[in-house]
Amino acid sequence: MPQIEISGLRYTYPEHSFQVEIDRQSFDSPLTAIVGQNGAGKSTLLKLLIGLITPQEGTIMINGVSIDELKPQAKLKQIGVTFQDPDDQLFNATVQKEVAWGLSQIESDQLMIKRAADQALVAVGLADKAAENPYDLSLSERKLLTFATVLAINPAIYLFDEPMMSLDWPSRKRMTNIFHQLVKSGHQVITITHDMDWVAAEFSTVHVMAHGQITFSGTPSALFGNSGLVKRVGLLPPRIMTITRALGDHSVYLTPEDYCREHKQVANNLN
């Protein structure tokens, strides 16, 4: 399992006083979500993790190597990223070229590039659109295309900023499957998200950011069981919990299925 280690990290924006400060933190679980309000520092942390901005203090180690010692190409192999808005990155004439372009930054074997690009397009379900102009695709498809550009490179760690945003329902299911496959094949997936239902249902580890710091790390059930903390950092619990709370039930349910399972047991016990 690839590993990210942060120690003594401090980053202050030059133009304003906002500061991200993380004393000691490791990211070593296969499926990690980073949550928090807007302006909590999530995107800044993401930029730090991929070396787009350099901290004033502290180090970020990826698999034992400091991020600023990694060569650009080695970094791309270690850690791949997609951003919220797919239109921030698409510029090639065809879908196929868009996927191949990213890979050609680190790979020179044309045959290999083509094979990897085709595989990635099949994985996200865009194989039949390979010859189209990326901007003729729907928003949901453009988002899938940005995932394909990273999948083709196959880095050890995947970083996604709001991956589910602007995806339609079939694409969401497709992406969730891809996440699980990545985890199964030994990759690490870290996502920034506002979607608490999704976090509760799929993730093993959650980090909560507030005011530039990581204020909580643990499992979704530990997080949503602590309703004081959830409120304090400005999060909403999963929808099923909003309902059960309103009904006076203060247990932790991560998904509607959880609730049903629990209550079937209750029903069985009664018999």
Binding site: F91, N92, A93, N133, Y135, D136
Partner: peptide, 8 residues
């Protein structure tokens, strides 16, 4: 211009 989608 070549890269612009046709609808545009």
């Amino acid at each position: 211009y070549r890269q612009l989608p046709q609808r545009m």
